[in-house]
Write a protein that binds this DNA or RNA. Structure first.
Length: 489
RNA sequence: GGAGGCGUAGCUCAGCUGGUAGAGCAACGGACUUUUAAUCCGUAGGUCAUGGGUUCGAAUCCCAUCGCCUUCACCA
């Protein structure tokens, strides 16, 4: 961006600001009570004859202007809609007319007038009184060109919200989705809590944390990578149905489906298991869909997702057999299939090998499905902190919800056995690479478990990804208002 | 982090195998009291991301740097 040119535009507008002051007006505006949402005004009858028209008061941003001699037609925008206002020289007086000459695209104004139609049939506020509410010193994008540059839109999200209707729409729908989830869970008797964001030990997931520092205590702290370990402490404390919707931070790559900070729902129900969570997940997502219009067949990019219940449930092992032709416990067959596609089978755990094959052979198949599918009953080796199925020590009670191949939810029958938990912590630590060595034994958490945690069903949902799927958005950066960007130089 | 692509006026974009930087909107000056693809006449606006190099001559070719996008890897 060229400073010389910017300051030129800015200078012109600053000069106008001074002229507005010279008119005795406040160029930054004052409290302006009682204005009606433009969307509401647009619903008023606009076919009344002059004299019987509804009186209205609106406030908004000037987004388009058409001068016509002694009359101006201006479109003002607020977050509920857009409406044309007509400003006539006779109607607003000398001061109002002089002010009108000083308007720029982007300025904020308030209008009082009555609502009707012009001769051309356009719903219009015929202004009797103008109030100046705020000057814009920098030029806004023009309405016709719009905002096409992705980087420009991300760095000027405030403009994107005004000039890209889909951005505002998507933002509001995401908010409705989250609110519907909260309402649904509250109705079921879950309570929402707020766990700490600064952790002495970043646990609950396999991810690299961000490091920060507390000055007075003089200790390094980590931004949380999961909500899990504190919510489980609350289960020990008797809070039986608990959830948190909150930001977690993972110091990893950025992609259309990954932002370094993102919003997770984690939920735990004492005396439940993963089946409890499957039922809950389906109902909760359907409640969210209801909140934003209710269509269960939803477009997503080139595809259509059909959320009509009941959603399919497929066993991990069955999918594996279907897509690889090998039984999941066929050690020789799995190894052979792995070698066939160039995987190193030396010193690799059988279950780990199975999952690599799953990613390569099964996930592409899951991407082809246009309905959500619960994949359940995972190999126990993949989820050490999950309870085993009764009588099947090789199978863990876990499911993941896949939609178009995207992992949206992950749920477990949680391990509440502190002895196994502690062993697993130790095994993980022993096998960690140098760069992951910030992971530590969470002795305090194990101590909590030793006081007795109920058998529990637990669920995690990536809220951003769910919002993507429900709002037909293909990049996570468009469901997050301020995704991480490198700072401008 | 690897590989590819992109970066021209405030915004949206042209600019061919190297030959004096363009348009529309926005802006500025003037005209017009009912306009709605966006009235008419005129004016101004650019270190072509940044820094090097090749060349008589670079927005255009080469190298490096910065930023964004796509993709792979890691994850949710």
């Amino acid at each position: 961006m060229s400073d010389a040119v910017d300051s030129n535009f800015e200078q012109v507008r600053t000069d106008k600001l001074k002229k507005i002051e010279a008119l005795g007006l406040d160029p930054w505006g004052q409290r302006f009570d009682g204005h009606q949402p433009i969307g509401d005004i647009r619903k008023l009858p606009d076919d009344k004859p002059e004299g019987e028209r509804p009186k209205v008061r609106a406030a908004g941003r000037i987004v388009q202007r058409r001068g016509q001699g002694k009359a101006f037609f201006i479109d003002i925008w607020d977050w509920t809609g857009k409406v044309q206002v007509m400003i006539g020289q006779k109607q607003v007086g000398d001061q109002g007319w002089e002010l009108t000459q000083l308007f720029d695209l982007g300025d904020l104004i308030g209008v009082d007038g009555d609502f009707g139609k012009t001769r051309m049939g356009e719903p219009t506020i015929f202004v009797s009184k103008l109030t100046f509410l705020g000057k814009s010193l920098l030029p806004h994008p023009d309405k016709w060109g719009g905002m096409a540059d992705i980087e420009f839109r991300l760095r000027h999200r405030y403009l994107d919200l005004v000039y890209s209707p889909e951005t505002l729409d998507r933002t509001l729908r995401r908010i409705q989705i989250v609110r519907a989830i909260r309402t649904h869970l509250d109705k079921l008797g879950y309570v929402e809590v707020e766990g700490p964001t600064l952790h002495a030990i970043a646990g609950g997931a396999a991810a690299r944390p961000f490091i920060t520092h507390h000055n007075t205590l003089d200790i390094d702290l980590y931004l949380r990578i999961a909500l899990e370990l504190h919510l489980k402490r609350l289960l020990v404390g008797g809070i039986e149905k608990v959830y948190e919707i909150g930001r977690v931070f993972r110091n990893e790559g950025i992609s259309p489906t990954h932002n370094p900070e993102f919003t997770m729902l984690e939920l735990y129900q004492a005396y439940g298991n993963y089946e409890t969570m499957m039922e809950l997940t389906e109902k909760m997502v359907l409640a969210a869909i209801d909140a934003i219009g209710g269509e269960q067949k939803r477009p997503h990019g080139e595809r259509t997702i059909d959320f009509a219940p009941p959603w399919d449930r497929k066993k991990y092992g069955d999918l594996f057999q279907q897509c690889t032709g090998k039984a999941i416990d066929d050690r020789a067959g799995v190894a052979a299939a792995a070698r066939e596609i160039g995987l190193n089978t030396q010193n690799t755990d059988h279950d780990v090998l199975v999952h690599k094959l799953f990613e390569i052979k099964v996930e592409p198949y899951l991407e082809t499905l246009d309905r959500p599918v619960f994949v359940h009953d995972y190999p126990a080796g993949l989820c050490p902190l999950t309870k085993r199925k009764a009588g099947q020590p090789g199978i863990a009670e876990r499911f993941e919800l896949y939609v178009l191949g995207m992992e949206v939810a992950n749920a477990y029958t949680e391990l509440n056995d502190p002895i196994t938990q502690e062993q697993t912590f130790r095994q993980q630590l022993a096998g960690l690479a140098e760069e992951d060595s910030m992971a530590k034994m969470d002795a305090d958490f194990v101590r909590a478990l030793k006081h007795g945690m109920p058998p529990t069903g637990g669920l995690g949902v990536g809220i951003d990804r769910l919002a993507m799927l429900l709002t037909n958005t293909t990049t996570i950066r468009d469901v997050i208002l301020f995704p991480l960007l490198r700072p401008e130089k």
